[in-house]
Each structure stands twice: as C-alpha cells, then as structure tokens.
Amino acid sequence: MTDDRQELERMLGRIALGDRQAFSELFDHAGPKLFGLCLRVLKDRAEAQDALQDSFVKVWRHADRFEVSDHHPMSWLITIARNTAIDRLRALKAHEDIDDHTHHLTGRGAGPEAAAIARSEAARIRACLAELPEDRRNAVQRAYLEGDSYADLADRYGIPLNTVRTWLRRGLMALRECMSR
C-alpha cells in the first residue's frame, strides 16, 4: 500500500511536469479502479467512460494542485472521479441546477496539520464508518456513491425533510468524533 502510494505520488509529480508517459502509466494503474467507481455511480458504460475521461483530463490539468494539497494520491483521484461522476449523474437527472453542485477540488496546503492527516489510517476510517448506526452509514454512502440529496434521503428513510439534515449531521458528527479519538 505504501509502495503503491509512493508510486502514485511519483507519477503525479511527473504529470505535473507534463510527462505524457507518466500520464499513460497512471491511466493504466488507476483507470480500472476509477472506471469501476464511475460505473458504480452512473450505471451506464458510455456515461462512465465519459466521466473517466473527464476525470483524467482534470488530473492532467491539475496534477500540480495535488502536490500542494494534503491528499493521499488515491483519495485525491477517487475524489475527482467521484465528483465528476456525481456531477454527470445530476446533469442527467437534470432535476437540480447543475452549476449549483459542481464540485471544486481542494488544493490548498494547510501547514503542519497536513502530516497528521496523511497519517490517518484507512483501517481506522473504515472502523469508524462501521461504528455508525446502519441507516446513517447507508445514508452517507448513498450521498457519496449515488448522489442522493437531502430530499432523496428524507424520502428513502421516511424522515421529515426539515429534520433529515440534523439526523444525518448526527451521523457525520459521530464519525468525526470517532476519527479524532
């Protein structure tokens, strides 16, 4: 995992310098995972392929931002692909203002805390997710992977629209607390 991380960081560093070979390597390396994610979100091969391409166009253009961010390389790539796929899904659903939901990449280095975040262990994140009550974990998951809005979640879990935000925030807060233990 550490090797993989260093490998990805090396590729992104070279891509930031305009290295096409590194870009091709990254596509081979991370493409299947990100395509799987796009497919999971969009459930349509053609749409997922477009989202994958859009994602990698962003990677090519913004690889320099990765270097000054506090991201893990894989979570940075996943965030780009997930946001791209969700934006596309919402544009397809067209029931909301697309621009309103367009995601922006974070790309601002934030000093000494960065190292602390980098040490956040995947296993711990997963354990904390697992600690959430099942309905809230599913709700967080649905928002992340299916692009559910608060209205969708209220509908799905039979919660009044005006309390669904408080309900989900309680789950997110529990997650935050678990993470900072």
């Binding site: 799987g36 999971r40 091969r45 392929q49 974070t106 995947a122 967080v140």
Partner: peptide, 30 residues
C-alpha cells in the same frame, strides 16, 4: 483542510467498489 480531511475519509466508501477493465477507446479518446 477540513474539506480535504473529509474527502480522504469519505473516499474510503469507494474502497469496496470493484475495478473494471477500461474500454480501449477510453484511452484513445482521452
């Protein structure tokens, strides 16, 4: 920083998503 932190943590939700073979046309188009 908090946004980045959440992005890292929530990206774990994608860990179980299985990789899929990428169509050859995807790279050419890209």
């Amino acid at each position: 920083l908090s946004v980045t932190q959440w992005e890292i943590e929530l990206s774990e939700l994608a860990v179980d998503v299985a990789p899929q073979p990428v169509p050859a046309a995807a790279w050419r188009g890209l």
